[in-house]
Design a protein around this nucleic acid. Structure first.
Lengths: 151, 151
DNA sequence: TATAAGCTTAGAGTTAACTCTAAGGTCAAC
DNA sequence: GTTGACCTTAGAGTTAACTCTAAGCTTATA
């Protein structure tokens, strides 16, 4: 039986966060001392670790709530329910990835295009590009590749 | 001279958002009607478009504030200041990308490992993996590659 | 037994970037 | 001259997931 500080140490989640998860119905302390102190069983600990793992995998607390309700009654739930949740999350992650990759590419292009030196920014190509609404993709690509097959 | 609804249409930013940007010092309407209606000049429009482009590129409103203060007085600022802001943002984007790619890989692995069928979740490998703290990377990789060079 | 560390709760604060509401003034058209 | 669409402001609400605070018990240690 662990106290909250011990569980905190064991899981790397703060006591605040553990109480927050409890308030939101994700976890619980099976026992309390007479004074009201939380005491966690091994089973509680495993549940908390499940939550942490799911969290690290990108699931929202809401997703995790669903996963947990499957977890406690696996017989009443199907693999499909689990994969539905997982696939939905993957779709979200992929969407974000696409967005970030586009940003990454733009930022790299911008950095390539600018001298980055101590001269004043009058002709800074980053500023120009942002002013031009980033049609610079083409400009810079042309400048950089000097012969690429533009669309 | 555009009214706010016209600028909204032109830029795709809502009137609410435009006022929000104004409140936060990013943009301004050069003129107001007697009744207090905002009127935007071409120069105002270009500034708003700059903000929008920068926003799409991933810059925070705070970053954009800095970029804008460079933009209005390029002589007093260096290319290096611009690249510093840009590079900082790229570092952030790269960090997020790494995190998301890891999630993506995990989620894909999880989906590969589970049948996703209508059978109950008693032996669902996704649930098992989350329970096991995802040491499954190895399990699944082994199962999938059936002969890969594990570390 | 006294102090300090740790526990409890309810509830407020944080962050970023909006998004919306309320209450009221303005303007163009019929 | 009266709709109805549009504008104004100040300020509250939204979202997710914490994070922190205050006020007050409890427990372990010296």
């Amino acid at each position: 039986m662990l106290k909250i500080s011990e569980l905190s140490e064991k899981t790397g989640l703060s006591a605040h966060t553990l109480r927050y998860y409890e308030k939101h119905g994700l976890i619980n302390a099976s026992n309390r001392s007479e004074a009201g102190y939380r005491f966690y069983t091994d089973s509680d600990v495993r549940r908390v670790q499940f939550v942490k793992t799911a969290r690290n995998t990108g699931f929202s607390l809401e997703d995790i709530g669903q996963l947990l309700s499957i977890r406690v009654d696996k017989l009443s739930h199907s693999c499909q329910e689990v994969t539905d949740i997982t696939r939905k999350k993957l779709v979200e992650v992929n969407a974000k990835l696409t967005e970030l990759q586009s940003m990454q590419q733009t930022l790299e292009l911008l950095l390539e295009s600018c001298c980055g030196g101590p001269e004043n920014a009058t002709h800074c190509s980053i500023m120009e590009a942002l002013d031009a609404g980033l049609l610079l993709d083409k400009k810079i690509a042309a400048r950089t590749e000097q012969g690429g097959a533009a669309k």
